[in-house]
């Protein structure tokens, strides 16, 4: 078992192995999303309270979930990269950040679109989740801005890793404080059907969408990490041979 991980850690092997997973993840992801969209939009029963507007959860919940997952991937790979000085781990963090930012933006946008019919405003400060997503988006921007400000890749990797870890420690605190903050002035109590208590017919599409998004995210992440590995290993022999092989 360990030899697999050990092999995976060495850039050339990772570069080859990951190439095989990308198409599978992408296809599987798109299939699941396809099923989830169709089932969610047309076959799942309407919500007795929100009517058809609730169908937005089929994109909002997976996006919010991915925004959190991306940051935890960044934090874990940052820790691995700092402790064991593994370039591959830093490459994973570098690859995950933009994706996380995109999906956080998506979660924010779909959340506010969903809010429009429910609460009548595009931005509902009373909803703690929306505010936490917004702060999360600033954290992603800060991470990417720091990475862009430092030219030397290894230095940028290490500095942004420290920031990712500090951010990771603060995320639960941010969530808690925003929850407390919104509970102060009794924002509109939200009945959100996101929980598993909803009917199976509503639930299966949601699970399909979540897994679909995750596989799609996995394919994108692997693709980006391969690029980051390439840019970090551009001096290595295996890169030269590969490039020669390709262009010859």
């Amino acid at each position: 078992m360990w030899t697999f991980f050990h092999k995976l850690a060495s850039p050339p092997h990772f570069y080859d192995i990951s190439a095989r997973f990308i198409p599978w993840f992408a296809v599987l992801g798109l299939l699941l999303i396809g099923y989830g969209t169709v089932a969610g939009l047309f076959f799942a029963p309407a919500d007795y309270q929100q009517g058809d507007a609730f169908r937005i959860i089929y994109v909002h919940v997976p996006a919010a979930y991915l925004s959190m997952m991306a940051y935890s991937i960044m934090a874990v790979s940052a820790a691995i990269g700092l402790i064991w000085r593994m370039k591959l781990a830093h490459a994973v963090a570098a690859g995950a950040a933009p994706l996380g930012a995109w999906f956080t933006f998506l979660a924010l946008a779909t959340g506010s679109i969903w809010g429009r019919p429910m609460w009548g405003t595009w931005w509902e400060w009373g909803d703690p989740r929306l505010t936490s997503e917004l702060i999360m988006l600033f954290l992603y921007f800060g991470y990417m801005a720091l990475r862009a400000a430092i030219d030397d890749t290894t230095k940028a990797d290490k500095a942004s890793a420290v920031l990712a870890l500090v951010g990771a420690v603060n995320i639960p605190i941010i969530h808690f404080s925003v929850e407390w903050w919104s509970s102060l002035h009794q924002g509109p109590t939200l009945v959100r059907e996101g929980g598993p208590a909803i009917e199976p017919a509503m639930l299966y599409p949601l699970l399909a969408m979540i897994f679909g998004f995750t596989f799609f995210f996995g394919a994108l992440l692997l693709a980006r990490v391969r690029t980051e590995v390439l840019s970090r290993e551009h001096r290595a022999r295996w890169v030269r041979n590969m490039m020669m092989g390709e262009s010859a």
């Binding site: 600033f138 954290l139 921007f141 800060g142 500090v166 951010g167 941010i174 808690f176 404080s177 903050w181």
Partner: peptide
């Protein structure tokens, strides 16, 4: 300020 302000929000809130 871009790095510190998001992290300082809980302090400001409380």
């Amino acid at each position: 300020s871009l790095l510190v302000l998001p992290l300082a929000m809980p302090i400001l809130i409380f």
